[in-house]
Design a binder for these strands. Structure first.
Lengths: 192, 192
DNA sequence: CAGCGATTCTAGCGTTGCTAGCCAATCTGC
DNA sequence: GCAGATTGGCTAGCAACGCTAGAATCGCTG
């Protein structure tokens, strides 16, 4: 059985290679540059190999999105841990979230903008997704008023951050006032 | 000069035809179905004709987006006019906005999700865009606290609505609780 | 070492957005 | 009223896309 084990190991390694190459290519040149041909060349295999690992391009993007959620979760955890108080933690998390979207647009798009075949709002959602949401929840929960469902409040807050991030990045909201909008949002959610 | 006038009239009419066909095709079958070939067949002309009117497919989508903004502006105006009070007006506008995104997803995507070559946050933005934003502003302005910039507050509120709309429609937020999230948002923005 | 499976590659299909160059219909000047 | 110029649409085709069938090659087994 050792030989089959090695094969599966190599296979898993190559799958990791594909996802990494797709992520790096997307982050440096955008998702439009991530074609199956280009990606195959990058990993030094032929095109059809990709399809022996993933159902199609969307599935590769989904895998990248999951990785991205893990990254985001780490950043959010650090941001919250470094903040002295409840309100500061929320602000830090919000700032980190929108900054993540600005710094890593391709990754963010795969996670939250593009249509990817991923279960999100269910228990079958991949762990990194639930993890990232959990980091938001941890920051929002303390500011929930009596009778407010923390989960729903987190979803609402998340949506607001997502809207700010995407509209700003697409040029529909002017960049400069971003911090002020963020402050307004925090203010209204912390009841100030 | 009358003959040239007629030509320009016919040309403008055909341009209207292109935009309308693109919008209808997108609304019924999604933007993926709007290929240049399909669109050309729909208007009963050949492909290259499209390029004598628009620089490319993106420009056609942009034209559809502008139409969509006009439609949205009308709906928002009606919603606000029918509401008895300030808070109700805000709720009605929010409800109308997200419902628009749900009822006309292709149109909404062209307006606010897809990358379209349109100036947004500047004075050169097409009139329907500024009009739609103005409808939001009119609903948000009355609930702005002292010292809060109504414009910035409107942008923030808009972003929240946009986030709710897109995340819900892409399945990242569960549909059923949408109304509750909307209520939470309104609550926090009206300081309740 | 021969044969057999599994796996990778070559080649190609159907579509996409977009464009070059031909061709015909229309307007202008004699 | 008619030849010449011009506008404008159409046919045909390019390069690139996601994806797949079938050939070919690799590595293990007896």
């Amino acid at each position: 059985m050792s030989i089959q084990a090695r094969r599966e190991r190599e296979r898993a390694e190559r799958e990791r290679l594909i996802v990494t190459a797709a992520r790096e290519l997307a982050e440096t040149e955008g998702w439009d540059a991530v074609t199956t041909r280009r990606l195959a060349a990058e990993i030094e295999y032929s095109q059809p190999v990709l399809y022996s690992h993933f159902k199609g391009k969307e599935a590769i993007m989904a895998a990248v999105a999951v990785q991205g959620c893990a990254d985001l979760a780490v950043e959010l955890r650090q941001a919250r841990a470094a903040a002295p108080g409840v309100r500061e933690a929320l602000a830090a998390v919000a700032e980190t979230y929108t900054s993540f979207a600005r710094r890593r647009p391709a990754l963010y798009d795969a996670m939250f903008t593009h249509l990817v075949p991923l279960p999100f709002a269910t228990q079958e959602a991949p762990e990194p997704l639930r993890e990232a949401f959990g980091r938001l929840l941890a920051a929002v929960e303390p500011i929930a008023a009596d009778g407010e469902d923390p989960g729903l409040l987190t979803e609402t807050f998340w949506a607001a951050l997502h809207g700010l991030a995407t509209l700003t990045r697409s040029g529909r909201l002017p960049e400069p006032a971003h911090e002020q909008r963020l402050a307004l949002l925090i203010g209204h959610f912390t009841g100030g």
